[in-house]
Structure formats: C-alpha cells, structure tokens
Design a protein around this nucleic acid. Structure first.
Lengths: 204, 204
DNA sequence: GGCCAAAGTGAAGCGTATTCAATATGGCCA
DNA sequence: TGGCCATATTGAATACGCTTCACTTTGGCC
C-alpha cells in the first residue's frame, strides 16, 4: 500500500525530468547543479535521489526521453518518402532540423554520453542504433531498387551522413549565419549520391 | 633576475604538461584530479596554478600541443601526394590513423573543448581551422585541376569527411574489431569522389 | 656567505554531489 | 471521521576536488 498515489509519483518524476531537461540544456551537465534542478522542480535535493540513482542517471533519462521522441518523429516522416532519393532527403533535412532545434540536447549527447566508457551496451546506445538504423534501411532499399551500387557498405554511408550533419550544424550553431536546412540537405544528398568528380573514376 | 633558471622553469612546465596529458587521456577531464596530476609530475597541487591558470587552461595547453604536433605531421605527409586524389587519400588515412592512435586526446577535444561555449575564437579553434584548411586547400586544387565540380562548397566536403572519419573511428574504438585504416580510407574517398549512385542524376 | 625575489608548499576555503536520520503526509481501516 | 503507519520528503552532514594564499625553501647574485 503506497503512501501516495501512483499518479502523483509519476507527476513528481515528470516534474524532475522536465526541470532537469531545462537546466541541463541551459547550463550543460557539469555546470548544472542538483540544487538548481531541485528548485526548478520544486522539490528538495534529496528527493531527486529517490527517483533517480544519481546525476548521471538523471541525464541519461533526459536524453532517453529525447531520443524516443525524435525516433518516432523521424520514422513517421521518412515513411512518407516515395523513393530512395526522397527518403534520403527527408532523413537528412529532418536530422538537420532536430540538430538546429534541439542543439543543447544534442550537445549533451555528444559531449557527455557518446564519449563515456560505459556507452557501449547502454540503453541509450540501443536508441542511437534504432535511430541510425532508419538510414541503414533506406540505403538497403536503395540497393534493392538498383539505385545504389551494391558493394557500398551502408555503415560507411551512415558515418558520412551523420558525421556531416553533426559537423555542419555545429559550425552554424557556433557561427553567425543560421543554417539553411533545405539547401544544405539538398547539396549533402547530391554530393553523397553523385560524388564530387567531374568524370567518374574506375571503381576499385 | 629570476630566482631560477629559465631551463628549469621549462622543465617544470613540460613535466606538468606531460603528466596532465597522461592523466587526462587515461581518466578523462572530470575524473582526473589536480592532485593526481601533481603527483604524477612530482610537484605540489599549488604549483600547477603558478604555471597554468586552472584545470581547464591545463587541458587546453595539453590539446594545443597535441594539435601542433599533428598539424606539422599532416602538412608534411599531404605535401608528398602527387595529385588531387592521392592527396585526398593521404589526408583521410592520416587523420584516421591519428584518431586510432590518439583516441583519448581526440575524445577530450570532442567532448570537452569543441562543445564549450568559449570555443569560438579560442587559440585551439585557430589550430582546428589550420588543420581543416589542409583539406580545403586540397579541394580547391582539385577544382583548379578540373577534377572536381566547381560548384561544390569545400566546407561541405570538409564536414562530410571529418564527420565521417570521426564517426567511423568512434565505432571501431568502442567496438570489437580494429579499424582497417587503408581499406576504410580507400572506400571513403571513393564514395566521396564518385558517389553512391549506379547512374548519375541530373545536377541541381 | 648572506640577501631576497621568486619558486614551491599544503592546508584552509568553498562549492557541489550524495547520504541519511528525522519529519510530514495521505491512504486505509476501524 | 480519526488515528495509524508506511513511505514520501526534507535538509543538514559528509565527502571530495578545485582553487587560494600565507608561509617556507631555494638558488642566483653581489
């Protein structure tokens, strides 16, 4: 018999998670303090440790809920693409859009979670896999449709594309001019599909 | 009139920097402690603050000296490439090699420095610019030699390539199988130059 | 050989994550 | 309705790590 309704416990959990999302996004992981998060959620410092193991666990839950949201969005939008090239373009522009819109959460993932020694095998890596597998599927379908050379490693494509998107948005976020999402997405997919060369070279 | 010879001051500085490089690389920035670095350098905690402003400044000097070293190496090796495609291949494989060999220092740069709010305009960003400008120059020469389409934005190529290298090495470092540098460098440059497509599409 | 500026020390100060003993609360049963 | 008590909640105490600073030691120079 719980001393409190499950609904209220969920509300507490949600309030802490929302406050943590806000404070972590605004201040970064190390600068954000538990006290500040607790105050933002209108609870005491100690209570946070009843709902989450520690500060790091709190961060991981913040990013997990973010990932769940963007995976659902991306799957829906990519599914609307009619063919390989359209789906590829949707994926690139959508990922760019998320990077621009939620740069602070993306930064937390890049700088705090992905580099951690315990990332491999973690729940959040599972979600990252699921996210990137959306692209792998697009590439596999492109090969099946005869649009893409069959000897291409989809993982290479994934690394090139997600790496490019990450670096591009990075530069624009830190930089002065805003990122023109449709234009960048267009040239990125164009270079990826057609290459840089004026004339085709002999394939290895 | 200094109370101590400039040589000894340089030795002290070098000893602290070397110890910090070792400890930061091994433990990561936040886990590494000043006390541990001081002990590894065989000095007191307080002395570190006579040579460096604070812990962050120490990290920046560690990464600056790393960058100076790899920039010199890369410039020499790329200069040996006879033409556009050879120089591009040298750059990719060399950058991959550095990522594999010095993954811990690369990780520090990615997770601690590049994401920092004061990165823009910092000395270390200048060095990053200098490093990536080696690729920009290769692409510009490729355009001049008529190998590459002139309407390509070299910055896009830079983001795609460095992003791809970063992601690829990441996966292999965290993963089980070691990265086959020549093979990955070969397929990366091939996809970049020739694209994924079986048949060329109409250019925008 | 002694002076003294600067190198070097390390314990105290301060800020923050985490723990835990004490307290408040709200659902349940009589 | 009123009291019981499991547990939600609190916040002060603890632990730890960066940084400071008053003090000590050193080594070059006259």
């Amino acid at each position: 018999m719980p001393a409190i309704s499950p609904q209220r416990m969920r509300d507490r959990y949600d309030a802490i998670l929302a406050a943590a999302t806000r404070v972590f996004a605004e201040k970064g992981y190390s600068t954000a303090s538990i006290t500040e998060i607790a105050q933002a959620a209108d609870v005491s410092d100690g209570l946070i440790y009843k709902y989450f193991t520690n500060k790091r666990d709190l961060l991981e839950h913040v990013l997990t809920s973010f990932y769940v949201r963007i995976i659902a969005d991306l799957e829906i939008k990519v599914a609307k693409g009619k063919n390989f090239e359209e789906r590829l373009y949707v994926l690139v522009s959508e990922h760019l859009r998320v990077f621009v819109a939620d740069i602070d959460l993306c930064r937390l993932f890049i700088s705090e979670v992905r580099v951690a020694s315990d990332y491999r095998g973690s729940a959040i890596q599972q979600l990252n896999r699921r996210y990137t597998s959306i692209l792998i599927k697009i590439v596999d379908e492109g090969i099946a449709e005869g649009e893409i050379l069959p000897n291409i490693d989809p993982r290479l494509v994934r690394d090139m594309l997600f790496g490019a998107i990450e670096h591009s948005s990075w530069r624009h976020i830190n930089g002065s001019q805003p990122l023109d999402v449709p234009r960048v997405a267009r040239s990125m997919t164009d270079v990826l599909v057609n290459g840089l060369a004026v004339r085709r070279r002999v394939r290895a």
